[in-house]
Design a protein around this nucleic acid. Structure first.
Length: 301
DNA sequence: GCCCAGGTGAAGC
DNA sequence: GCTTCACATGGG
């Protein structure tokens, strides 16, 4: 479904749109001719960034842009957050490598479901799974001229009605029962996601940990990317690597100790610091290709 | 062929 | 309490 475009420019500085939309916090953005195309709630939107700010195009008239301003956190004081980071070399390097990286404010259900699907998957694969899920269970939304069909993220109610086999067909493998059960708890009203906004980060985390398929890491992602608890510090394999290599090089440090270090070292905006470290590791120290490494090892032998 | 990926839950000590 | 393992699927 296509329609005419509505355009609006938001004057905002120090906003690295590419890094923000492409840094593993949201999975529904794709690059298109120098712009980023995605769906927020029920809105298809195309975003472009230049010296004047961020320009948004939608496929329908918009009178209230709060949904977009809130999602992108356009009025957020990034400089104030950077000032709270620890003054050490790894943090400096991470921030300098990726100026303007932000955290989004996503809808809790989409964020929760997405990260349930994220476990031991690469980001491109998570994007693929979620793409299939939206195509098959989401609602079609109006798109801009020349763009193909696009879909909203499926509701918990819709996914709760799906079968495990249908979900597995979206290539999510063993994550299917987790998503199905969690969707059921939310669809039935047994678990209320909106209630978490009013809790402390510790209590909100405790609640999320009750959901099937949600452990500490995924809970922290949802607390950080959806609810805006900026002290939440998700530790995945990349952040673990960052902590080991950047803060404890050539030392044997237990996972427990790394967690304790993370909990005390990075301050009130630890989650923001975490995102910079995550992005820094992924862009500056990408995974070596196994074949090259093995070939090299053989040559040395 | 092999290792790894924004992990979790259950079973074993 | 901790450690180990299975769980699907695809990229490199």
């Amino acid at each position: 479904m296509n329609s005419l475009l509505t355009t609006k420019t938001f004057p905002v500085r120090h906003y690295n749109l590419e890094a923000t939309l492409n840094s593993g916090q949201a999975f529904r953005w794709s690059a298109s001719n120098g712009a980023w195309v995605g769906v927020i709630g029920g809105h298809w939107v195309r975003l472009r960034s230049d010296d004047f700010g961020i320009t948004a195009e939608t496929a329908e008239p918009i009178h209230n842009w709060a949904w977009l301003e809130n999602y992108l956190r356009l009025n957020f004081d990034l400089e104030g957050v950077l000032l709270t980071f620890p003054e050490d070399e790894p943090m400096r390097a991470a921030v300098n490598t990726c100026r303007g990286l932000r955290l989004l404010r996503q809808a809790p259900w989409e964020c929760l479901a997405s990260f349930i699907l994220s476990s031991t998957k690469q980001i491109v694969q998570i994007q693929q799974i979620i793409g299939l899920l939206c195509e098959r269970f989401g609602e079609p939304v109006l798109t801009g001229p020349g763009y193909g069909a696009a879909y909203s993220f499926p509701s918990a109610i819709r996914l709760a009605r799906a079968t495990e086999a249908e979900l597995r067909d979206c290539k999510m493998g063993f994550r299917a029962p987790y998503l199905l059960k969690t969707a059921g708890l939310i669809a039935s009203g047994t678990f209320d996601l909106t209630r978490l906004y009013n809790l402390t980060v510790e209590l909100a985390r405790e609640e999320l940990l009750n959901l099937p398929g949600v452990g500490r890491k995924i809970a922290d992602c949802v607390l950080l990317f959806a609810y805006g608890f900026q002290g939440a510090f998700p530790v995945d394999v990349w952040v673990m690597k960052a902590l080991r290599q950047l803060y404890f090089p050539r030392r044997r440090v237990s996972i427990q100790r790394l967690h304790r270090f993370a909990a005390t070292h990075f301050g009130p905006n630890a989650g923001y610091a975490q995102q910079y470290l995550f992005h820094y590791m992924r862009t500056k120290h990408p995974r070596r290709r196994g074949r090259e490494v093995r070939t090299l090892a053989k040559q040395i032998i």
